[in-house]
Design a protein around this nucleic acid. Sequence first.
DNA 1: ATGTAGTGGGAATGCGCTTTCCCAAACAGC
DNA 2: GCTGTTTGGGAAAGCGCATTCCCACTACAT
Lengths: 381, 381
Amino acid sequence: MAASTLTEVARLAGVSPATASRVLNGSARKPGPDIADRVRQAADSLGYIPNAQAQGLAKSSSGLIGLIVHDIADPYFAAIARGVQEAAREQRKMVLLATTGGAPAEEKEAVAAFAARRADSIVIAGSRSSRPENLEDNAELAAELDRYCRNGGRVAVVGHPVVGATAEEGYHVVAVPNQELAAALAGKLASGWDGDFVIIGGPEGLFTSDDRVRGFQEGLAAAGRQPADILRTAFNRAGGYEAGLKLAGLIKERQAESGDAAGGTRLCIFAVNDVMAIGATAALRSQGLRIPRDAIIAGFDDIETLRDFRPALSTVRLPLEEIGRLATRATAPGALAAGGGPEGESRDAGTGGTEKGGAAVVQPHPITGEVTLRRSTETAA
Amino acid sequence: MAASTLTEVARLAGVSPATASRVLNGSARKPGPDIADRVRQAADSLGYIPNAQAQGLAKSSSGLIGLIVHDIADPYFAAIARGVQEAAREQRKMVLLATTGGAPAEEKEAVAAFAARRADSIVIAGSRSSRPENLEDNAELAAELDRYCRNGGRVAVVGHPVVGATAEEGYHVVAVPNQELAAALAGKLASGWDGDFVIIGGPEGLFTSDDRVRGFQEGLAAAGRQPADILRTAFNRAGGYEAGLKLAGLIKERQAESGDAAGGTRLCIFAVNDVMAIGATAALRSQGLRIPRDAIIAGFDDIETLRDFRPALSTVRLPLEEIGRLATRATAPGALAAGGGPEGESRDAGTGGTEKGGAAVVQPHPITGEVTLRRSTETAA
DNA sequence: ATGTAGTGGGAATGCGCTTTCCCAAACAGC
DNA sequence: GCTGTTTGGGAAAGCGCATTCCCACTACAT
């Protein structure tokens, strides 16, 4: 038995399919109450479930929101996904998930698949990259996105615009103040620390990583400090661990030189995200080093499940869930565009916000990432 | 400009829509190479993307897999989701995500929504519950699932069958040996510990929690120990924290009585999942207590991002990703059913595996959750 | 040369629904 | 009593595609 159809319901109720459609799915025209009841009863007794595919085909809109992440098991993306999910629910839409491992080629595939499904909007959450080996794929991704927008799709990308995407309509960017926040973090750290700094960064060309690195160096400079050395590695725990091992060697060397385990030679390590910071911590520990005795570590993102970690990471709180929500809302049909602060009832029904480099930019409620210095300097409990 | 259609492509290529369809989408009939080329070129130049909705409508199958979780930001579910995603990719399908917060009513909604979208299969990952207040909703969920199966849908549920679901076709259960593993954990803990045990459990009626509690008590009994007291609380970090506060009070009392901070009065706390264990740890710490000095803590799941936690949790490794994969594969059209061990080439093309209580049960490759006692008894590094 | 199988293409139908258009009835106004 | 206007329902035309059936044609065997 295949699921029952609207026609069957209509027949059972003794009305035309048109009428049945009108009562069962929100139409402007409301049939008479008696008829409506008959139809509803018929639908009920048949266990009628409308075929969303057919509906979508008929009114060319699917009620789908596509979400693209690197890895759904990464808590960073999981948090964003939760926000997207929530906003999707507000809009009575469902979310379609694609994980790409961060490869632009896969992202392009995902966009195409979403386009094929006629997703109403697409949220891209992974960090953009300008690495030369991705040049071509990035271009194709941009082209795919542009086409999608041209066909009426709406796109929100978290962080940075997709390199080369030039769509004028329906293309939104949720800015994340990585650089500013990293600078603030550096400032705070510098004010309570007179040793050297080291940065564990992701691969060069990864915007999120680059921004945080740049911001951190700026913050250091503003505090009158020397720029930090940079270790480049993978943007995940394994990368952090690897870098941590190297740093452990460095730290031991320095300690041997100064002949003293303590002293002003301690390093402050800034990993560009929490997961890398955790990896680095584990690596140091594996080499017999202790935090904060031998070094202190700071991260970025303030991942929820990592908050109970001890010694606590100094980190920057990013409202990831909110970011996901904002991105999703930005793509909603009647979305208000530029950041409405308390005063900002300046809603305009347009498709984008402030123009910036040809692309519409949503200025989120100034995403107030907070810098939280946890007791990374205390002894582990 | 709305996306171009197959008809347009056909016209541009100077062929009929039928032919265009045959070359662009894998049909059994392959048109001649010259024509195929013309069509492909036309499609390319128009940027043709097939309309998956229309395709789905025409061949009544959507290429969609529905995934139901409590909360995608919970690392437990995120890990499962990763597995599901992976298996979906193998099947060249996309995953549709629904989060329900664990409420059966919402789960029923989700199933209905998936059914409306004509999802090819549904994977339900949240723990089942038999709480009286959910009785009615559970029944409705079961009815919805049965209907979905009757209409040809395939369902896999992780852990326990949905109470009351009786579908005979396409209904799979991926068993998770919570009880056995909890018993093993209790045994291991008991062999290295002679103090008392306490269990922090989820709300009564939550199967996953109940199984783990029961298993743990069994393990204790097998080791000749007294049953542990049980604290019931929420199945998340907050619950763990709350219980941890209570236990902190208890521990302090006992320490006051014995007049000694150390000694055999230490408690071994078993939280039924890692996230709760982390919460409990944080609570103890907040009360000035230390692990393992004042108590030791064990969890369950071996959540990846929590592995670097120190002092390390004793925990049970559950192959969550694999579970997600298995569940998804179980719903694949040609899925082989009962657990094929190395010897087991006993594939049968049927829809289910061993019958058990009227429901088909997939016996996964004996899901070998390992019990890992981490150095929870060592001093925090 | 004739019949048969096989091949490659098009016409047409239907998937389940929405929506426009049309028509009949009921109602108002003068 | 008539026209003009609403109201409430049905008929029918798609939405974009897969697929079945049908037809023209070729290749081969007889």
